[in-house]
């Protein structure tokens, strides 16, 4: 079908042109930007100065640290909850499996802005109300202290992502041959032994996929951050994406913000290479 060169290029040209215009060219220009002091209107070359300034910029370093902390809490929580859900809804002869799967997955359909506002209401109004009626003071004043603000974002992300990660674990659990489990049962293995020695090893690829998927998503989180706390209180929940956005479009330090964007790109690259390394290692 593609013996004629003309057809081949006809088929891939639209994709190549759009990828070039929307991603590749802006990316290359972006690298150039990061060596300038652009404010959106004028720019002059300042070499590596942006990157040097980044290393001593407390706000940026704080954002990086918060993003890493947020990502770790998210990745661990989402995978523990997701795997737990997957095990809960894949037991045989359970009447509620389908209903529960749906309930756990639904938050994943909602956009980040809506999620942020939903949880703003829950943390501010509902937590407060429960805190007062149960007399539990730890439920009061959520989102108004740095720690509860970040935990609020973590809880929101658990709620959003766990059901999605659950689906990945379910699809791997369903691929475990039934007779493997049955013969283990015949050999007298109990449920715990079956989980640790049969199910868990089979889930190894699901772990790699889920861990890196949640990691990549939490690195880039923005909308939930904006709608839930908008970085507050006192920039204590301003993650890296929001820092880039505010630097570029609120303070108009676009060259500087672009240098931050390149740092984020390097983070994401490292994570992706780590993923590639781990999945290759397992396959061989």
């Amino acid at each position: 079908m593609f013996t004629r060169k003309y057809n081949y290029w006809l088929f891939i040209a639209p994709t190549l042109i759009l990828l070039a215009v929307i991603i590749v060219i802006p990316f290359i220009i972006g690298i150039f930007y990061s060596f300038t002091n652009s404010n959106g209107l004028t720019a002059s070359w300042i070499g590596l100065k942006n990157y040097q300034l980044l290393l001593s910029d407390d706000n940026f370093l704080e954002s990086c640290w918060l993003t890493i902390l947020f990502s770790l809490l998210s990745v661990v929580g989402i995978n523990v909850i997701g795997l737990g859900f997957a095990l809960l809804v894949t037991r045989s002869d359970n009447y509620f499996n389908r209903l529960l799967r749906t309930i756990f997955f639904v938050p994943n359909l909602i956009g980040g802005i809506l999620l942020g506002f939903i949880w703003q209401f829950i943390f501010i109004q509902i937590f407060q109300a429960f805190g007062e009626s149960l007399d539990w003071s730890w439920l009061k004043g959520w989102l108004s202290t740095p720690a509860t603000g970040l935990w609020g974002l973590v809880i929101l992300f658990w709620w959003q992502m766990s059901g999605y990660i659950m689906l990945i674990y379910i699809s791997f659990l369903n691929n475990i041959p039934k007779n493997t489990i049955e013969s283990a049962e015949l050999d007298g293995a109990n449920n715990q032994q079956i989980f640790w020695h049969i199910k868990l090893p089979q889930l190894a690829p699901a772990f790699t996929i889920s861990l890196f998927l949640t990691l990549a998503n939490s690195f880039k989180i923005y909308e939930q951050n904006l709608a839930l706390t908008n970085g507050g209180p006192y920039r204590s929940t301003e993650l890296i994406s929001m820092n880039i956005y505010n630097t570029a479009f609120v303070n108009y330090q676009q060259g500087y913000a672009q240098a931050e964007g390149i740092v984020l790109f390097i983070f994401v690259m490292l994570v992706s290479f780590a993923q590639l390394y781990f999945s290759r290692k397992r396959e061989s």
């Binding site: 891939i12 991603i23 972006g30 930007y33 880039k220 994401v268 690259m269």
Partner: peptide, 24 residues
């Protein structure tokens, strides 16, 4: 090479290109 170029652009986070993209 074209295939890997296509797949490779997936690695670029949107936040790393949004400033030049909007400016262009």
């Amino acid at each position: 090479s074209i295939y890997y170029l296509c797949a490779g652009t997936m690695l670029i986070p949107f936040q790393s290109i949004m400033i030049p993209l909007v400016s262009i």
